[in-house]
Design a protein around this nucleic acid. Structure first.
Length: 494
RNA sequence: GACCCCAUCGUCUAGACGGCCCAGGACAAUGCCCUUUCAAGGCAUGAACGCGGGUUCGAAUCCCGCUGGGGUCGCCA
């Protein structure tokens, strides 16, 4: 490549949950493209959603990205010439930029309440109309707008989209993409809380950080016109757009945690090798020439081009990933495997964390492994404990539903320590109408495939959130397949 | 529903300029071999160009339509 402008790309995750495999996927292509072109790969944390962003999530994302081996050149932790790299620390920048837009008339204050907007959308949907903001506040005079804002009335700032014409942009993988302006509504740029939305912060930062190529997931394709309008409004040169296909579930829908393990923590805990994961992700929508499918990161970088991307959304297949991981594992020498085991669950730290759970239950060292075996396993076999999976008086469906609901409740559980889990689980049982005793036994068997284990919450903590949730889900699947009991034949009950 | 994107075996994909493709590899499946067992490995089998029109001497490859799938329509990203 001989482009004069240095390539700068970024991965811009939102720290609102567990590190996502999709983030690693998009990061991979950004990283590879940057390295291929001797450019920079930047990590920017998009934490503009004050209610959902957490520092723990940010840390976990950075750890996971490091674990797979995609180290950034600039980022919130290591700094760089275009910092800060955390959007919450750039609020002032967005405020200034949005002010310019309001000044020039490219954006305007909107005083509509959330209730009005919801009613509006509801009505539009009911009538089968175009769903979007109707532009009520767009017509307000500058004086009215300023008076109301000055009086302290809450407002958001919206982008004044052109109402006619069309916007055309070039996606590197698809060519020209056209949208009719009339069907794009006035996007909110700044929320009532003074924080920017994705659209504003992203465009401003991409420009200020000198991003040359925006490599992101296809779900962003339909908001690109709004971004184009923003670039125009600021008088900036837009970057090149590259929208990667979306990773899919087996049913072809966008990959989701209900249908796939999606947390990078799960892959780490399950003993996937980062290089195998990366290799596998590299085969999702991209291919190296010929019949090859195994390649290292460096090999991918050496020959990378966007020309070899196919746009059909690839189904993420855990089975094939496992097979590939097996190939990598077998290619290691003995010492190499030992080293991997040591960085996995045979680390001193992990073993030490299990000792308090096992110590009192052991008389001899040889009992340690049988006692703790399920801490080192992946998916369990529930067939031997099938009779313990169904509490008396509960149908398979009720039981499976209970487990699934619990998994979902666990998703938003931040404190995964025993002290944090116990009250949560008790509250959950009560709310669901389950006796704590039967509920705890169900969970115990689900996460361990045993009736006797160390204390439940310590066990869950030791397993980790990702593995615990995976087991609960698998258990729910297992239970769901159990035959329903025959209908109660309550004859003569004297 | 509106708009946008996409379309090769069940899945990931190969298929540069249309002919070398009655479509290749891998995972999964099945069978056989190897083997005390289980893996691994080897061999083999079944399995796809969504449909309809064009263009062309010739199309999986180009064009159009249809169908199908997906994404987006949030004071979430």
């Amino acid at each position: 490549m001989s482009s004069a402008i240095p390539v700068r790309v970024r991965i811009a995750p939102s720290p609102t949950g567990d590190p996502h495999v999709g983030t690693a996927y998009i990061a991979l292509f950004n990283y590879v493209f940057a390295k291929k072109n001797a450019g920079q790969f930047i990590l920017r944390i998009e934490d503009t959603d004050r209610t959902r962003s957490t520092p723990e999530s940010e840390t976990a994302i950075m750890e996971s990205l490091r674990w797979v081996g995609l180290q950034w050149d600039e980022g919130p932790d290591i700094g760089g010439p275009c910092g800060p790299y955390r959007q919450s620390e750039r609020a002032e920048i967005y405020r200034q930029h949005v002010a310019k837009l309001v000044e020039s008339g490219a954006a305007y204050r909107c005083f509509c309440t959330a209730e009005r907007l919801e009613a509006l959308r509801h009505e539009q949907r009911r009538q089968g109309l175009f769903v979007g903001y109707d532009g009520l506040c767009r017509g307000r005079t500058r004086t009215e707008s300023e008076t109301r804002a000055g009086a302290g009335e809450p407002f958001v700032i919206r982008l004044a989209m052109p109402r006619t014409g069309e916007i055309i942009f070039v996606d590197r993988l698809r060519g020209e993409v056209k949208f009719d302006n009339a069907q794009i509504d006035d996007q909110i740029l700044m929320k009532t809380d003074g924080f920017p939305t994705y659209h504003l912060a992203n465009v401003v930062d991409d420009h200020l950080m000198g991003i040359t190529h925006v490599i992101r997931a296809e779900e962003w394709l339909s908001s690109t016109p709004k971004h184009m309008v923003l670039y125009q409004a600021f008088g900036w040169q837009p970057p090149e757009w590259i929208h990667m296909p979306l990773l899919r579930n087996a049913d072809k829908s966008k990959i989701s945690k209900r249908k796939n393990p999606v947390s990078l923590g799960y892959y780490r805990a399950s003993g996937f090798l980062p290089e195998a994961l990366l290799n596998y992700l590299g085969t999702m929508g991209w291919s190296i020439a010929g019949d090859r499918e195994q390649f290292t990161l460096d090999e991918m970088i050496a020959v990378f081009t966007f020309d070899r991307i196919s746009l059909g959304g690839p189904v993420f297949d855990l089975v094939k990933l496992s097979a590939m991981n097996g190939d990598y594992l077998r290619a290691l020498d003995d010492a190499g495997v030992v080293a991997r085991l040591r960085t996995w669950r045979l680390s001193d730290d992990y073993l030490r964390s299990l000792i308090p759970l096992a110590r009192e239950r052991m008389q001899r060292l040889d009992q340690f492994l049988p006692l703790t075996e399920f801490f080192f396993s992946g998916d369990l076999d529930y067939a031997p404990v099938v009779k313990d999976m169904l509490p008396k008086g509960r149908t398979p469906k009720q039981t499976a539903d209970c487990l699934v609901t619990f998994v979902e409740a666990l998703d938003v559980q931040r404190d995964f320590s025993p002290a944090g889990l116990e009250p949560m689980a008790r509250a959950f049982a009560e709310k669901s109408g389950w006796a704590t005793k039967e509920f705890f036994m169900l969970v115990r068997v689900a996460i361990s495939a045993r009736k006797a284990t160390p204390p439940l919450f310590e066990t869950m903590t030791g397993l980790g959130k990702d593995m615990a949730r995976r087991r609960l889900r698998q258990a729910a699947e297992f239970v769901k397949r159990l035959p329903e009991p025959p209908p109660p034949t309550d004859q003569k009950t004297h």
